[in-house]
Design a binder for these strands. Structure first.
Lengths: 210, 210, 210, 210
DNA sequence: AATGAATGAGCATTCATTCAT
DNA sequence: CATGAATGAATGCTCATTCAT
């Protein structure tokens, strides 16, 4: 995040995308907003603050986003896109199910820690989204949950995992812990992201032992 | 028009608590505020809305609470008081450590579900609290965490539990799941509170098997 | 309108109405708003302008009126109240019907000219009123129209007036002319209010001759 | 990219009107604006709304009109052009003066009803016009009034009409009723345009009987 | 204890217009 | 001719809090 701010639109003349400038504005706004919403909350951050930090005018922001709410939604969309892609990538690896679950369980911890700001916003500000957008986010979130659950169920069906606990609850248990990370995890604390990921994944796998 | 007009609800002089009426007003305000803050968020609920719902006037509210913030703090204080008492009660039972941990793990799920509103507020609105009060809440929360962790450590020391995962992370894992409940648990869904509590406690104990 | 502004609440101590102060604020706002809305239009007048001219703060205005719209409505209500009372007074006089119609026809012209500002607003800004309030105004306006029409019909039934033109259209014809006054009538022009009133009333009566 | 990219709709050099295409755009904009201004008011209609409804871009609109105000002015100009032509046509017929007045009185009602939208705008939005344009409109309007008044005066001079009421006031009386039409007349109501026109013209002539 | 009018700073949003391309 | 990103000032309205009574 060093030379991003106010970069004087140095897109080379042969840049094929005509929207380089506007992509700059859009994504700069989303980046800045994510940071501010995480630090001060959605309601605690004024549009004025966001646009000032992004170095654009209010009018420009409203040219690209229909509302403050819309800006928030874009943050959600960005997180969800990343997370689901990551999960699908792992779920389709050619590995035994317990190894896939372990890898996914580690990955969700690591990537959550990698963008803790997004995570803070995700669970704290969902209710600020309009009802329609909230439903879209929930639907996408459910897809994510279901894809993970399918792996658990696969393991249960094939006897690799215990069936003592319903797969849905297993997923909620693990994801709850992940969600909670933004509350207590701090960079420079006693554990690196990968440590926490492995500890949590190990606990998950232990809990699933037949 | 100073002391007329009001039924002489004169609390006896040696009564240490405020008058019955004012206790009524105080707790009615806290109750109403908890519901509204959970439903619409702290910033999404105006003081006007709260006092109207509680059937008192704004002036009355500011007589009992120094600020809107203070009202929020009272909600936190109420939750924390209840939770810590409950945990201490269980932790001091004369039972093997794994049974105590299991009981505590079930209980925290059940009591969280019993007052889901409080839980919604707890994690969503912490940052609305002033820095001082936020620190107080965090300190109390830490005490709670530590008391639970102590039980885990006791089990690890005595070989009842595996020491593979640091006790602190074990607690964070379980509490994360509990925290997450307010996001997905719904009355009338497939599981009763006690079911979820037992499933989660079972997973925790499974994960801790040596 | 000399010493009204900012009068230092000189209500004598034995003033029985407890709301003298707030009535001051309310009616001062309505007066000022009527003048400004007439001069610059409803949309062309900002709330800021109104409250500055009335010497109150924006918050105070919103304490008394729920919206800018509500302020406009109050102007309408005031006009309608006055007009309907005046018409009823005349309609109930013990005079032949043609004299009552003449008197009412003169009076509506005179009173419209007496408060031309209100009339300018009335027809220019109706559409700025919310749908509910617009309906209320229309209903009240219809009552007024109907009371006038009843007198015309009475004259037609009794043969004093010609029945060549439906009574409703007769009323619309005359009221149209009255409505139009705010477009062209100017104080200090060739005719006094009473002149115009009598000329118009004479034309109406002439048109109604059998 | 100056003169490329556009089909060579080259209007012949001696064609005094702008190119067909641009005439299309211009008049489409005026048409659409008239409808929107009538329905939502001038201030209640954004330039964005107008250009979207007309299927052109904002830039295109500002190419043809110097401002939103200018668009409004064009509506006024169009109405005035039509009305004055119509009046002159009738005033120059070779008929007795009372018949000419009757015909003109009917015609102004009918043509007003034929384009009620324009009439709504005419009286409601005059004050939105800049002072210069407002003066131009008023001047043209005065010409119209005077041409009508001349006919009345001709009738008064020749004894066909009563001189009891000044001709100017007679015109204001009738035109007021016409102006008012947009407030109450509705297609599909009890009277067709021609009915109302004849009733009103009859009243006017009756009122003018010596 | 309680009232309710008043404050005043702050907020999200709109919009006519400009201008480089 | 046309585009669409950008401007910047203005707007209606909210709200926690205060204070005279």
């Amino acid at each position: 995040m060093v030379s991003t701010h106010r970069a004087p639109a140095t897109a080379s003349a042969d840049d094929p995308t005509p929207t380089t400038r506007s992509r700059d504005v859009r994504s700069r706004l989303v980046d800045v907003a994510a940071e501010l919403f995480a630090r001060h909350g959605f309601e605690g951050t004024s549009v004025q603050t966001v646009v000032e930090a992004a170095g654009v005018t209010k009018g420009a922001m409203y040219h690209h986003f229909t509302s403050k709410d819309d800006l928030l939604y874009e943050i959600y969309a960005r997180v969800l896109r990343t997370q689901i892609n990551q999960l699908l990538r792992i779920a389709e690896l050619d590995l035994p199910v317990d190894q896939r679950v372990h890898a996914a369980a580690v990955d969700v911890v690591e990537s959550t820690i990698a963008s803790l700001d997004d995570s803070i916003i995700f669970f704290r500000s969902m209710h600020q989204l309009g009802p329609d957008k909230q439903m879209q986010v929930r639907a996408e979130r459910r897809r994510y949950h279901e894809r993970f659950r399918d792996m658990i169920e696969e393991g249960q069906r094939t006897g690799v995992f215990s069936s003592a606990v319903p797969a849905d609850l297993v997923v909620d248990y693990h994801f709850g812990a992940v969600h909670h990370l933004s509350t207590w995890y701090r960079e420079g604390g006693p554990w690196r992201a990968t440590d926490v990921g492995n500890y949590f994944a190990d606990m998950l796998l232990s809990a699933l032992r037949p």
